[in-house]
Design a protein around this nucleic acid. Sequence first.
DNA 1: AATGAATGAGCCTTCATTCAT
DNA 2: CATGAATGAAGGCTCATTCAT
Lengths: 211, 211, 211, 211
Amino acid sequence: MDESSKSVAPPDARRRRERAVSRARRELILEAAREAFAEHGLAGASLREIARRAGYTPGALYSYFDSKEAIYGALLGESLERLNTAVDAALAGATGPRDRLRRAARAFYGFYRDYPRELDLGFYLFNGVRPMGLTPALNEALNARLRDALSPAEVALTEMGLPAAHAVTETTMLFAQMVGLLVLAHTGRIRLFGQQPEAVLEDYLARFEGA
Amino acid sequence: MDESSKSVAPPDARRRRERAVSRARRELILEAAREAFAEHGLAGASLREIARRAGYTPGALYSYFDSKEAIYGALLGESLERLNTAVDAALAGATGPRDRLRRAARAFYGFYRDYPRELDLGFYLFNGVRPMGLTPALNEALNARLRDALSPAEVALTEMGLPAAHAVTETTMLFAQMVGLLVLAHTGRIRLFGQQPEAVLEDYLARFEGA
Amino acid sequence: MDESSKSVAPPDARRRRERAVSRARRELILEAAREAFAEHGLAGASLREIARRAGYTPGALYSYFDSKEAIYGALLGESLERLNTAVDAALAGATGPRDRLRRAARAFYGFYRDYPRELDLGFYLFNGVRPMGLTPALNEALNARLRDALSPAEVALTEMGLPAAHAVTETTMLFAQMVGLLVLAHTGRIRLFGQQPEAVLEDYLARFEGA
Amino acid sequence: MDESSKSVAPPDARRRRERAVSRARRELILEAAREAFAEHGLAGASLREIARRAGYTPGALYSYFDSKEAIYGALLGESLERLNTAVDAALAGATGPRDRLRRAARAFYGFYRDYPRELDLGFYLFNGVRPMGLTPALNEALNARLRDALSPAEVALTEMGLPAAHAVTETTMLFAQMVGLLVLAHTGRIRLFGQQPEAVLEDYLARFEGA
DNA sequence: AATGAATGAGCCTTCATTCAT
DNA sequence: CATGAATGAAGGCTCATTCAT
């Protein structure tokens, strides 16, 4: 190697490095936003606060995201990605459809039970009158990923012998049951009945044992 | 009548009248707030907007409520009052515990299906994190009224022969099911499965028929 | 008078007083805006600066004006009002149409020569691509007042015997001449020719002497 | 050829090439700025926007211009250059001083009528108060070129027999007339009188026919 | 020469609340 | 009881410019 080769890195390697650094900084900002949203809510967390936590000035965030809404959208997208990863992972090694149903349900429920902030993230979308203007394209994509997370349950029910129409209804009911339990647990309303949400879910899943 | 008799009314009658007027004006403000919250959400509706709709200037509202949060609290309290009224009314003329269970469930679900704004009202409490600083006393009172609306179902289940512990679990499950369905319907997520929420609820209630 | 009559002023008198005070404060803000615009231009003068000069916090201005643009609109409206007042006053005591033509022209020109800031005010409307969104209604009203200021010249020309079509053309030409001179004088471009703008205007007006 | 001969071009030829390329890129930026200013005005067009249109990032522009103002200055300079080119071209083949006067006036007026953005460019200088800090040297140069564009008219008037002092006054008056007409036409104010600016200019020029 | 990130100041506007009248 | 003004803080966002790489 001669002298010049030392100071001029191969352009593609350099680009790769720069992109990696950029992505890392983007993640830093998202992490800061996650914390800020968790602490103050979506509306309550200001860009200034997010920037402060990320070690930036407010304007700097606009190099990475177009708006506060875009930050939220990215966060929600990542969350649904993780949800699907968790569900898929839970299905590995299942012994049959009945087992897959249980595993899918528990993974879905467990995900939001373990990371309640992700539940908040999803609910921000519907607070009163949606203050957030997610692009329709993004909204569709998020919907699709949500549906993905539930389809294993539907497939399992079908394989357990339920007619297609029935399987959809049961999946919806299961989905509603889990959402309801999560909301009750998360808002502390389940305490009204002195119940453990997970025990209730297991009770609910027991219905399918004899099917 | 001489002059003085005109200006000096019996003190207690006068006080009664003044209180009645005051209460009526309070209601006017609450009605204005209801509309404003329905249109812009809790955070999105400003005191100015509420005052404008009520025909007042912002400062005037503070003669009736201590803060914007207090207005919200009063609204939520009224809403739960109406919920209980609806559930109680539905129980009149029931033929037995099984019927009472169905009637209570349908009344609860139907109330929020018909007045989705009241559902929003309840959810504002949990948007993000503590957007509202309801006093613990008020919070307790609201919880009690929510529990009241569900106790008829629990009583009915007990009378249907379920052991107490079981009845509580089933009530919780029913509650979760309804909350889940309401959330899915209200947020449009139920469309993901092409289901009608009410049909799903009836399916769910059918479980108890053979009990 | 009894005691109470001292503390309760007649409502209409009180309202009158309050409105007068309010109007005076509005004028204070307009005066501050006038100065700020003169010093920094329309775009360069910030609401903060205007508020500071008026002894207010920024938010307080919104009790008097809906926006920065509204302040500008009010200022421009007042300016054109003054222009018309000046032209009308100049016409008093004129000896005939020829004299009225000269008086109207000199008053128009003199107004903007004496108050060049008012000229700026008018020009802000057309800076590059109008950054200001005056309402069409306001725009129409302002146009009408501008036209008013020039109509005396047109009338005089007609009375001097010019056919109507001719009178309009001559008025337009006179208007263009004055605007051009004002612009050249105001921007210092007239120095390019070492001329005194007023002398040029008098030369121009001399054309009509023989008519 | 050996290796070194490839990388070492004759220094002056290389420098020439680099300068040509640099000048071309400079022009690209100016063109982008012209468009941006036309669309958003001087203050409304951001450096980012100009850079985007030119295919650059904001920082890159600083390799070619010291500031946003410098870009504007360069643009205005080019504009006045073109104005003089247009006036000079119009004079070719003139039949005498009277014709030259008309040709110069029409060329000047026509230039700004046809390219109203160049008129805007000139007016930005005086918006409000010193929005732009052109260097005195640049300002002088620009003034000189403006004067150049008008001197043919002055010369023609002198040759038509007017005493020097008179010729200057008439040139100033003609200049003012044209500037006034351009402003009225450009701002739409000429519509107030339902006049065609060019017809008015021809009327004005007719004065000199009998001279 | 060019990038992309970052700064720091500033923008207009909105808000819940207070308070003299 | 009601008004209208005022506050002070905060909001999201934009900008010309700088600078390490």
